[in-house]
Nucleic acid binder design. Structure first.
Lengths: 225, 225
DNA sequence: AGCTAAGTGTAACTTAGCCGACATTTTGCT
DNA sequence: AGCAAAATGTCGGCTAAGTTACACTTAGCT
């Protein structure tokens, strides 16, 4: 990969904003680059050496298989997100893989050890990274707090609001979200059964709170959700 | 506070092992020290400047008040744990306080800004700290995954196992835990009602899986929990 | 165009565990 | 010792939501 390209791939992640052009160029930490298309499965936790990934384009879901063989969605990764062993501790045993949700994705990756070296040489970056991980933790805490104390309907609404805020195209109070999830995916994210999710979505549709189809979700008034 | 004392207070936290005696002494980052006894409430999030706290002795619980005025336990902090704004991002709004559970506690604290400076000057420490925060995140993820997918009984068992591992005194397969929690506390931690927790504990007691009282919990065979 | 698999819609049945409403026990305090 | 408050024990009704089960619709492939 051309040096310049590497530069641009890291450049627009907010984490690396503190670094100068020449600094990033010197690093050359990107060692992998991959494109994949819808439905494809990408294994990463089992791979040879621990890596950190950066999703450049598209959407993927991180799926784990539990002991009984059930799929559970661990995370939805959007364009610009880092994923993989963000804790810088490789844990051997976990059975996770990524599944491509959007039409196609571009992923670049670097070795965890390279990244560690980088952090050691750039304390400012290390501090930013810590805050970044901390922020992720705070988000997780929040969403789990929701999962636990609220009922399914509230959870669905909260999820829709979050999604709309992150990715929706807003027009006044109306928001349109590109829908790359199935109702089953949504159900898993908000930790309910597929049937319950379907029911709740239809209920909201009859109340004209939203219009749902497989391509997009339109919310006429986000403040009413 | 004497320099030497400061040294010792930080010294035995694993995070600071990488630093030499003279380094820690130079830092002098401990700016606060506090003792408190059972039942006392310590406000910290609202305080003037953002701080990070280190619990030197005893146990406390971090409690949050939600919109409806309900108490929820966010965390149980044990001797040696760091708490407060570990993410290095002060968030203004959250209504949290700490309540002392053990007979007495000793807490020391330092300013977040001082700690940040320290991290900037010690890249190795910064990296350790990042991993430390990452580990905390992983723990949280795990325990929440339990909360969501398992039933109350399984959650109680998991909680007891974790607690036993962290603080229990082991004698073969038997474990004795000093019990500084009420059944209501336990219920909140495993996210169930007090009544359900009581019922489950009694059920386990009749099955001779444990013996419970307000001072201690004795588990004859931890492998059977 | 036609087939298959994936995704969606709907209903009846079942259940864990929340909640309210007590009684009883223990603890801390004066 | 005596009192109040906190902690624990117990019960039955109630409800959200999981489960089972099946029909229908859409998307993707050859």
């Amino acid at each position: 990969m051309y040096e310049d390209l590497k530069y641009w791939y890291l450049r627009d992640h907010k984490l690396f904003r503190t670094l100068s052009y020449s600094q990033i160029k010197q690093l050359c930490i990107i060692t992998g680059f991959k494109k994949a298309s819808k439905g494809e499965i990408i294994y990463f936790s089992t791979s040879d050496v621990p890596r950190i990934f950066l999703l450049k384009k598209g959407n993927i879901k991180i799926v784990a298989i539990d002991d009984d063989g059930n799929e559970t969605i661990k995370d939805i990764i959007q364009k610009g997100d880092l994923f993989g062993e963000l804790t810088l501790e490789s844990d051997n045993k976990n059975e996770e893989y990524a599944k491509v949700l959007s039409d196609d994705v571009a992923i670049c990756s670097f070795l965890m050890s390279d990244f560690e070296d980088l952090l050691l040489r750039n304390p400012t970056l290390a501090l930013s990274y810590t805050k970044f991980v901390g922020l992720k933790m705070k988000r997780i805490k929040n969403s789990y707090a929701n999962l636990i104390s609220k009922d399914a309907k509230t959870r669905l609404c909260q999820f829709l609001k979050d999604w709309a805020e992150q990715e929706g195209v807003r027009d006044g109070n109306a928001v349109t979200i590109e829908n790359y999830l199935t109702q089953n995916d949504i159900a898993q994210i908000i930790c309910t059964s597929r049937q319950t999710a379907t029911q709740l979505l239809n209920e909201m549709e009859t109340k004209n709170l939203l219009s749902y189809n497989r391509k997009e979700i339109m919310i006429p008034d986000i403040t009413k959700i």
